[in-house]
Design a protein around this nucleic acid. Sequence first.
DNA 1: GACGTCACG
DNA 2: GACGTACGTGACGTCT
Length: 939
Amino acid sequence: MAEATDKQPHLYLVDGSSYIFRAYHQLPPLTNRHGTPAGAVYGYTAMLWKLAASLEQEDGPSHLAVILDASSNTHRNQMYDQYKANRPPPPEDLVSQFPLIRVATRAFSIPCIEEEGLEADDIIACYAKAASAKGWRTTIVSSDKDLMQLIDDQVDMLDTMKDRRIGRPEVIEKFGVGPERVGDVLALMGDKVDNVPGIPGIGPKTASQLINDFGDLETVLASTDRITKPKLKQSLIDHAADARLSRQLVELVCEHPLPEPLDDLRLKGIPPEPLREFLEDQGFKTLLARMVGGTSATRNVPVQSLRNDVKPSSAAPVPSGTGRGEVERITVDRTLYQTVTTLDALDAWIAEARNQGFVALDTETDCIDCIVAKLAGISLATQPNKACYIPVGHSGADMFSAAPDQLAKADVLARLKPLLEDPAVLKIGHNLKYDLVMFAKVGIAVAPYDDTMLLSFNLDAGLGSHGMDELAKLHFEHECIAFKSVCGTGQKQITFDKVPLDAATEYAAEDADITLRLWQRLKPRVAAEHVAQVYEMVDRPLSATVARMEQRGVKVDRGYLSKLSGTFADEIAKLEAQVHEAAGGPFTIGSPQQLGQVLFERLGLKGGRKGKSGSYSTDVNELERLAGEGVDVARLVLDWRQLTKLKTTYTDALQAQINPDTGRVHTSYGLAMAQTGRLSSTDPNLQNIPIRTELGRQIRDAFVAEPGHVLMSADYSQIELRLAAHMADVPQLKEAFRAKEDIHSMTAEELFGSVDRDTRNRAKTVNFAILYGISSWGLAGRLGISREEGKAIIDRYFERFPGISSYINDTLAFAREQGFTRTLFGRKTHFPNIRSPQMNLRQGSERAAINAPIQGTSADLIKRAMNRIDAALSKAGLPDVRMLLQVHDELVFEVPKGQEERAAEVVRAVMSGAAEPAITLDVPLDVEVGWGEHWGAAH
DNA sequence: GACGTCACG
DNA sequence: GACGTACGTGACGTCT
């Protein structure tokens, strides 16, 4: 191939100084052959390699240079002596790598440009301007936001770590303004790291809003009379000079003569020497191997081999075979959908469903809450594009319009019941739990069934959510009709039973149509990807189990809650007065911002700023610290916080959630929400009712049984640690569980050689840390010790329980290889970021991947128990014992008085044996059971 | 709607 | 140049 003479020259400018900082933080602390730190240099070298490799590519460089900061003393320091004054010195093991950057660049025979008195940003600006003047394109390799000012039609940026191009649209996305106004926005918001002052109280959002409203900085400063918010206005007036200074500091200088002429930056190819020598010297074996293996017949550059195997790892974080597969183009023709208004038409649909043995269905209602919802209509689909809607509960748009022609609800349900209960016809739904409740309310027990939401959850957990609209887009690139486009939104929103039948048919029939297509696409993957066990034995049957629990609800004592609300309100009022008194004036205690100002400015307490908003942290740790130092107001605020939390989230909200028809609270369980396979609970969340403090615990007493009944609670003891002992195969832990020893004391003995309250507590913390994917830093923070001490404890843990470290290593190796983890029952959880080049993303995924098999197996077990419990109770002659709630490792039942002992034994047996017969655990699953008049007394 | 905070396992 | 220090959730109040 000829050299790139015929194409437009394309200059790449590498912001070397900023690159090496990022590389340092994102790569592990590697050392080179000489034992000196070289992680950042390696990252830098790999980046240059990648760039050089794209020489011949469409968008690759024809000219390339690396730009470095020559000195810290620049014209900006003369302008403002505080410029970059806050910046901490770089870490030592990074400083030692700075000179190597120049060596590495020379090894590539790439020009390395630096200029006394100019920052790299300014040099880049000069070159970009000069290149544009000659009609060249320029790509700035950096992610520095200051440089985004330079972007235009000819200039873009490239973030090689995220493998992302940044052009005008990306700038607008980030700043809300085009590149030409970025300088004004930066001047308003300032920059902590460079110590550019900006205007206090103005962050990115406000800054871009102001510039958009007024045009530029000077106009903003001149228009303060038009600004309505008093604080903002005053701040702008007070700090106008700071803003002008900031504007100058962020301005890039592009009038300087070029240190080297543009044409000298041409990239012709990389001579093998001295690159090979450099790679050998540093011991960068991977790159060296590529260089040798990729010898090209046509030229002496490593280009050919690079293109094939140096894929940017960030671009393909998900290993092959774990994605959701290719998009299948479909054509949805909504004109083919039918509105069924005659019994003959209905019978024809039922006959077709019977004939082929499966049918997709969906119900439409007048409300999202399936417990109170009334049926509006039912849609069916038998083939792609062959779907119908059967309205049964539609009314006119208002009280003056007549209801549309439709079949009688009772007739339709009478015809559908045999079909929906026919064991020879598979019913397919999406989030079928909702429909199961709707049909159960009219005496129809839908079976057998498949659920496409659960199919997607079991196949692709971790890769996205599992709503139908999203799945249609993902698998078919099809946009479903939006609910709000049919029913409107906000004040004007109407309920589905008011929607005209033609629009209702298009919307509802499409849902059944898409459900059918999703089923056709997803179902074959169940066997192929080995999730049949978890789907068939855990999640699919759980739909019906949970539907029953939701329908039952739990009785809540409104009078008791109301009284509690009153008591809390009095306490809150008292505390509020005391806090205001101590603060020297009223303010909104619930506003972290105002509270921070009161504590750390008005009262002058010492405390650090935290968070990117620049506001003070006032969380429980910070306030506990102050309270411990004898700051009474901190204790008062903590008490106020606890009481308002209890009142608003529990005593008030729970009363409002009592269903007027049943007098009970019916939560909704999310079956496909938590990535690990746990359930979640919403409207209200009954999985986070207080228990840890005495005050909060009173809320539990509001959960009561019907007269003549008690509430019974059964919970797995230490289930996650038991599973860890089994899965990691740790003999001492397994033995301790078999012998019913106290596991935290036993750990304390192993770790610290003695057992007292302190060592036991610390051992308990360590045990949890293991489950959550440990880091020495995190453990140190929790235990209030140094990182080194934290690391020593972890090392000792691994040494005493070697199974744990091999479990972690094996789990991570598997996850990196496959992109997902599995529970003992085969449940998959995907981790698309497990190989991300971004350290924080990657490490977060690693911790989650260590935890997921354990948390997920625990979820599998309790779900299996739940699926079996109703039948086991009936078989034991206890059909009136009703399972009501699940709280991850706990089940709550309503039990007729006199049946407690027998119910306890049945429940205990089912829960303890939940792994069998699929799995035999090496540890017993102990279950603790208690009961009483209310939930609080059942523990 | 984002953020901070806090309730649970 | 920033982020975030343990995993998984959901709800509320404030502020923009």
